[in-house]
């Protein structure tokens, strides 16, 4: 029964694979939950910052802040791409890379020089492979990005923007909509798009804040914090999205393994049955010949 033994081996091999994918699915599920908590925990700060900047901002102030400078033509731009360090997450990284390539192509077609900053082994590996120069690359970020990471990433481009060496900065990341939806997303973080006034600008229900020392000094401090926070949020969302994508991919792999195992088992049983039938036929045949 050579065929049976071969099938048994294959079944065992698929069972081992299934064990691994199922474990990875469970690990990703629990990591995703924790990462999701961090996404939620980051909301109050972002909301508070948005509200205060929105209520202090007025278009007359815009000219005084380099971070709000709207260049007439974008000649030099930076793209910050966030990917993961590990694979086994389905199309997660390739989607992000495709989004970033599309953005870079669009910018370059319109005559903009683009410098690329890449986070994550997957993105860095890809751009190194196609031979595209990166202005910076980092592969040392963990599953739990910190505000320090965000600050390190964005300070350089923010300084360049203030100096006038860059006219726009984009971040490409995976938005965490839900465990199943993690679309690659492009946000322009510089120049800063001032958040809308809370409650819309027409309603008169505005607090008449006492401002210490002044609206200008406060914005001066909060605008860079707002940019840093945009990058921090992109980092935590991407971290959660990565685990969500991995969970989905590993669940699909486990389901596939189940299906293959079922098919192989059916083949194995059929082969075994065929063999038994044949043996019986041989015995009966032999007995008939003897009794003849």
């Amino acid at each position: 029964m050579a065929k049976g033994r071969e099938l048994k081996g294959r079944i065992r091999s698929f069972e081992n694979t299934r064990k691994i994918t199922r474990t990875m699915e469970m690990v990703a599920t629990s990591k995703m939950k924790r990462a999701q908590d961090r996404v939620v925990a980051a909301r109050p700060y972002a909301a508070a910052l948005r509200e205060v900047i929105g209520s202090l901002y007025s278009p007359e102030l815009a000219a005084r802040f380099p971070l709000l400078r709207q260049p007439a033509t974008v000649r030099r731009a930076a793209v910050l791409l966030l990917t993961s360090n590990r694979g086994q997450a389905g199309a997660f990284n390739s989607n992000l890379i495709r989004e970033a390539r599309g953005l870079v192509d669009r910018l370059e077609r319109s005559g903009t020089a683009v410098e690329l900053h890449v986070v994550g082994r997957k993105g860095v590996g890809y751009f190194r492979y196609i031979g595209r120069a990166m202005a910076s690359s980092r592969t040392d970020l963990t599953d739990r990005p910190t505000t320090r990471d965000a600050t390190d990433l964005v300070t350089g481009v923010m300084d360049a923007f203030v100096r006038g060496a860059l006219d726009a900065v984009y971040v490409v990341y995976a938005r965490f909509v839900s465990a199943l939806a993690t679309p690659p997303t492009t946000d322009r973080i510089l120049p800063v798009e001032p958040p809308a006034r809370p409650g819309g600008r027409t309603t008169g229900r505005q607090h008449d804040y006492l401002l210490l020392p002044s609206a200008e000094a406060i914005l001066e401090e909060l605008l860079p914090a707002y940019v840093r926070n945009a990058v921090y949020r992109a980092l935590v969302e991407t971290a959660a999205a990565e685990q969500g994508a991995r969970r989905t991919a590993m669940k699909a792999a486990t389901d596939n393994a189940n299906e293959v195992i079922n098919t192989l088992r059916r083949q194995f049983n059929r082969a075994r049955q065929a063999q038994i039938t044949q043996e019986i036929a041989e015995i009966v045949g032999g007995a008939a010949a003897l009794g003849g």
């Binding site: 205060v52 202090l56 804040y209 006492l210 210490l212 406060i218 401090e221």
Partner: peptide, 14 residues
């Protein structure tokens, strides 16, 4: 230092 007691006027300070 700045102290805030209940019913303080709206304020934003660095």
């Amino acid at each position: 230092e700045i102290g805030i007691l209940p019913r303080h006027a709206p304020l934003v300070t660095l």
